[in-house]
Design a protein around this nucleic acid. Structure first.
Lengths: 295, 295
DNA sequence: CGTGATTACGGTTGACGTAATCATA
DNA sequence: TATGATTACGTCAACCGTAATCACG
């Protein structure tokens, strides 16, 4: 089981083609074919069907393992690179609803203390943050999501990274102002079962909510963007209800937020970093943590 | 980053010697030296100090990653091997206090339904079970431990394996019969802070208890064996108190179990298996799960 | 037939082992 | 000085690319 072969398998499974996988990897089609064949020989079974190129059950499973192995190798090499050189610049990834206030205040305090430090912030979808950390493109990531009050956010690559809880906010059901349900002091998800529903996976991963809503729920309207203002306008226009952290609905007059009852869910943002194990910590991380402790 | 090199690094770190690492791996000393050197060149930093051979901070961290990567590769190859051949025999690992009753009943029912199936059971320390599963030496493992009522057992290799909750029992404080504290209806851990304490890591991993007992606790007496009878005799002889599942103290007349209060902890056993994703399930696993659902 | 995967084959690379060298307890 | 890691170097395996072949749409 060579790393190279696993990388080839993963690329082939993802691309659905030896040719384009080879292009991606910088090999010839022939080489990739041999690499996959070598895996198949070693394991004694077919991993991808050819013409059309489609993974077998075994191949699909091995590809999952391969993805995790390669991710960990990336994380390892990023971590080790960080052992070498102390950071002169700090890059932070930020998912759309990840308490930007917190980061803003932290950055201000960092700027005042060490003005020569280069700081850059990059906005990303939550699930992308792990890859950025793994590849070393960012030093830390503030990501957010919906979970139970004492559950961690479960992101795919967790365990490799350290995640620290940084902020937590109650969830509200965002409704068009004047909506009949908005009068209630609290709303349970069951009440909304038949209401139209807006889902914005790029803005806020609602993994936990999927589990809470039964099969009886309507197919939600999908908003593929990551812009909060647009989503609020859609809600305000009566297209549907959305689940958001309470502070997110403050800005828009056409939308009201009704507290959620029943479903024990919260909005949380966590700070993800590579495990650097002491030794020369990142000033931005320190500042964010100091703030979150005070809040 | 080659798998071979990572394996070499890990062996060197574990053995504290290039020579014996090489013997373990079936290489010459020279080869291992070159493999580690190759890693060091690639990462641009020293991973192990020589004379004496000791990992640097970076090396230690990389070795941790390496261990996880190699474990996952083992799991992958075991899983894939299982895709090939349907099992004619079933091997189960069992940690010392992992509800043996459950397995016994399950095995009886399996024997009656398919008498031609070879079944073997192997007793192991809980932490060893993962390696056995990964190497393919066993098909399933019943492991137990102490955690919170809704927390999973956190074992190092989890995430690679599927773990299913199979049984749960209240924890009791095992005390010498006639012990002054035994008269109480319930005992909190705080009350026992100054009492002598018996810890048996091979018998029952008390990971969670470590967190619950403050620094003020006495250094516990260590019992290195994995034999419940012996531990109970030690308790009965007044050597100290021990934390055990309630059914474990039934057998011995010199010991009583007092229910635990305050600390929200339980004893749980979980069934660990490779992810086989449907397709030809293991009859023993099915039987154990069927039983646990009934209980 | 044409696109795309496999197989055949040669060149080059690089990994391991032997043996000599070096360093440290 | 002896044990044990590194370095030098030759050999051999294997990996990749080119090119021919094969198979499926």
């Amino acid at each position: 089981m060579e790393v190279r072969d696993l990388r080839a398998l993963l690329a082939v499974v993802r691309c659905g083609s030896f040719t384009v996988a080879a292009r991606q990897l910088g090999f010839t089609q022939s080489a990739v074919s041999q690499q996959v064949a070598s895996l198949e020989a070693e394991l004694g079974q077919l991993l991808v069907e050819r013409r059309p190129v489609r993974p077998t059950a075994a191949g699909r499973r091995l590809a999952e393992h391969a993805a995790q192995v390669l991710l960990r190798l990336d994380v390892a090499s990023s971590e080790l690179a960080r052992f070498r050189q102390r950071p002169g610049a700090v890059k932070v990834a930020l998912s759309p609803l990840a308490s930007p206030q917190l980061l803003a205040v932290a950055l201000r305090s960092v700027r005042s203390q060490s003005p020569d430090l280069k700081v850059s912030v990059k906005s990303v979808v939550a699930t992308e943050a792990i890859n950025l950390l793994a590849s070393g493109a960012v030093d830390a990531a503030l990501v957010d999501g919906i979970t139970g009050p004492s559950e961690p956010l479960h992101l795919s690559g967790t365990g490799l990274l350290t995640s620290r809880w940084v902020a937590q906010a109650p969830l509200v059901v965002a409704l068009q102002r004047g909506h009949p349900l908005a009068a209630r002091p609290e709303i349970s998800l069951e009440v909304l079962a038949d209401a139209p529903w807006l889902v914005a996976p790029a803005l806020l991963e609602g993994g936990a909510t999927r589990r809470h809503q039964g099969a009886s729920w309507k197919e939600p309207v999908l908003y593929e963007g990551a812009d909060l203002g647009t989503l609020l306008k859609l809600v305000g226009a009566g297209l549907g209800a959305a689940l958001l952290p309470d502070w997110a609905v403050e800005g828009d007059d056409s939308v009201t937020g009704a507290p959620l009852s029943g479903a024990r869910l919260v909005h949380r943002t966590e700070l993800l970093t590579l495990r650097t194990d002491g030794a020369g910590q990142n000033p931005v991380i320190e500042a964010v943590l100091a703030l979150s402790r005070r809040v």
